[in-house]
Write a protein that binds this DNA or RNA. Sequence first.
DNA 1: AATTATTTTGAATGATCATTCAAGATGTGT
DNA 2: ACACATCTTGAATGATCATTCAAAATAATT
Lengths: 190, 190
Amino acid sequence: MTRAQFDRDNVIKKSIKLFWERGFSASSMQQVVKSTGLKPGSIYLAFGSKEGLFREALGAYAQRSIESIREVLDNEKSIGEGICKILTRYVEESTKKDYCSCFLIKTQLELAAEGNELYQIAAAKLNSIEDLYRSYLEREFDPDLSRLRATSIMLHIFGVRVYGYQQGSAKRMHEGLRTGLPWLPWPPLD
Amino acid sequence: MTRAQFDRDNVIKKSIKLFWERGFSASSMQQVVKSTGLKPGSIYLAFGSKEGLFREALGAYAQRSIESIREVLDNEKSIGEGICKILTRYVEESTKKDYCSCFLIKTQLELAAEGNELYQIAAAKLNSIEDLYRSYLEREFDPDLSRLRATSIMLHIFGVRVYGYQQGSAKRMHEGLRTGLPWLPWPPLD
DNA sequence: AATTATTTTGAATGATCATTCAAGATGTGT
DNA sequence: ACACATCTTGAATGATCATTCAAAATAATT
């Protein structure tokens, strides 16, 4: 180690924001240079390519997401209540002005056709999130039911991540989630 | 009218395929030229821009989708059975080798951040599809329940369109749909 | 047949793309 | 203080991008 390198965490944070918002193809390295403050040479020395930087950003996002799920599920009174909290949070996120769905989902949809490695990563991470829900559910339900319900949860999460773009959709989503996941301990809607 | 123009329908069909698979940003006009057989000048005279061509392709796709939904719902014995058939078809589509979700959803996710007009179109069309389901449901259920169930259906459609990328997901989706939409007259799973 | 209107052609344009690399700067080891 | 390893710089590179337009071709009209 020679000189204090650039703040890698911050660069990844900025890259997540850019790539998440605009996607892989529509984000230019020029924009990366601008938003991270790094010069092209530094980026390429550190990450190898645009794809390399994207991969690291995507990985960091996935880790952050998984940790955030664990954090909620570990601290709520029951798994069901934790899941309600997470889903409710996702609905609320969608009401924000700069809402942009889920980075993993967007990457999967954008890059699936090219059989891109980044698509494989996104798909694998989403799969591991389903596994996470399943393993938590197994603390309260039998394995078969847990697997089934984990799938149903994922269908609803994906649904919310897309439906969230519809204007004024929050209220309908809250109701729709209660309709499709009636076995969860939902707090009453006011 | 002077000379018989190029086959517009066929050009749109080819453009739908390209844009649907690869998205707006990752599709180049060079690829459009190659896949449609048209030269740049003809494309620009007829559609004005890449965005113009994309808009027409997206519109044609949306119309086709809506017609296909109507066709099923009009011919099945009940609305519920029609919806089951449509959802089952979406699951089966996802098992095809060149599966690429839904053109409207992909467009919405790709172009939302830029506030692009194409995003507005995609969002509006998806909204009109929900309205279509709601209006059909109102033939069999009261308005409030119809609205609620239309939302729940859309959540599941969006879910299926994303979840479909997961390997071996068809079976789980069939089960997950029955879990989340238990009020539909599902045929038994074998 | 001649004229006019429209469509097609495809090379050319300038912008922007991801990436490179020689030169300079900064830190560590001696 | 000197040498060495590493990092940063940013202009340059060649490829590819969307788009244009003058010229040629084709059809309708006179």
